[in-house]
Write a protein that binds this DNA or RNA. Structure first.
Lengths: 224, 224
DNA sequence: ATCAGGCCTGAATAAGTGTTCAGTTCTTGA
DNA sequence: TCAAGAACTGAACACTTATTCAGGCCTGAT
């Protein structure tokens, strides 16, 4: 054989794969999952349609990886925010706020990852994504319960309820389209975080304090 | 003209229309929206595929009407339950419980109406459906606020958050599949209702009382 | 009984996209 | 420079379902 994959080629292949995934992500962020079609994504990534299939066996695999990718980033952000908090309750508040801020700053992408109809089956990937995020939130709730800050409860159910509340109210079809007004965005984040904390049993007064703390750090609402 | 629509014919036409809608509903309840395809629905309704188009201009219209139909029933059930309650807080609890019980007893249908991917555009109909239900819940929250039972808040946002929490935790992909165990179903309804009430600011202790009251009336979890 | 006119049928059509693959281009080592 | 082998291209294909429509059937008035 006179051809071997040299390091340079391996790097280029990896780069191309990333480019395709990035193109898919951009497409989803711009137009939702409906815009993630092989031909357009290929054009964005500067390859031919057929090339996509050298990197992903099918569209379902491409989208599944996209979902996994975004989820991984999201989970990392949640952990970072929660771990930086001084205690379990404020960690929970930070986690919730992080999710809220992220979905609001990338609404189309979030909607696409979470719930937008797709013509291929990505339920497994979506399920895994939800499991990861919900598991993290459940863990934070549990920590607060163990610290005596919250009443005992079914943390898994509570976690999925919290996420459902965040998603529906912030990126669901009824969500007000306040893309412009960053003040209103911040209000929405605060309101929903407050609801979430109270839902798991934080007293109203204390919840308000936690919300202020969690939103204070000045996270910008623009840019993931 | 030697042919006029006689009353008998008019009735038959109406019956056929209902049969098609009912067939669509049955299909959705059994297999989700993915099972609502023209040919199978036509077979269920004992008509030919082409006949469906004499009653509904397109599949999108058929599904939109299906969604509207189910929503209308749901809204009526919510109002009935809430109006029968002794006060605004228990009315809210009754409304939430009603939604929870209904989605649990018809999970596939609920998922189909709410969020399942469909190959035609039914966003308008789904939006209207959510608006109706969320509006009703928002009204109930507002009543409780005005009665001084809850802190002032953005009731529209709260309502959509509550519905999101119910849906995600009860019929979302993470929802445990307790179809069999009616005891667990009841627990889930109670837990989620409790979360919802606390979320809008009902004190924990009082919320627990309201939940017991709301779930008590012995609604069966089987059969819408 | 008859026929005018709508109603129903269901096979054929249409249309959109994911997927394939024969041919072309590029990369590597000699 | 060249040959082998891999990667890339993009037009053609495949597949699924919604939708259509020409022809047959039924209903109602005469």
């Amino acid at each position: 054989m006179v051809y071997r994959r040299t390091h340079q080629v391996v790097k280029r292949l990896a780069a191309r794969r990333s480019a395709i995934l990035a193109a898919a992500r951009d497409a989803a962020a711009e137009g939702g999952m409906v815009a993630v079609q092989i031909a357009p994504v290929a054009i964005r990534a500067n390859v031919a349609a057929g090339t996509v299939y050298r990197y992903f066996p099918s569209k379902a695999d491409l989208i599944s990886e996209l979902i996994a990718d975004v989820s991984r980033d999201e989970l990392a952000a949640i952990r970072r925010a929660a771990d930086a908090a001084p205690g379990p309750s404020s960690a929970l508040a930070a986690a919730v706020t992080t999710v809220a801020v992220h979905v609001l700053s990338q609404r189309k992408l979030a909607w696409g990852i979470l719930a937008e109809p797709v013509d291929v089956d990505v339920t497994a990937s979506r399920l895994a994504s939800r499991r990861e995020i919900a598991g993290e939130i459940a863990g934070r709730i549990d920590a607060a319960v163990r610290a005596g800050h919250l009443p005992a409860q079914d943390t898994a159910l509570a976690a999925s309820a919290l996420l459902g509340a965040l998603h529906e109210s912030l990126v669901g079809p009824l969500a007000p389209d306040n893309t412009e007004d960053s003040g209103k965005l911040r209000d929405a984040v605060q309101t929903v975080t407050l609801l979430a904390l109270r839902a798991v049993g934080v007293m109203d007064a204390r919840a308000r304090g936690l919300v202020v703390q969690a939103v204070l750090p000045g996270k910008t609402l623009v840019g993931a």
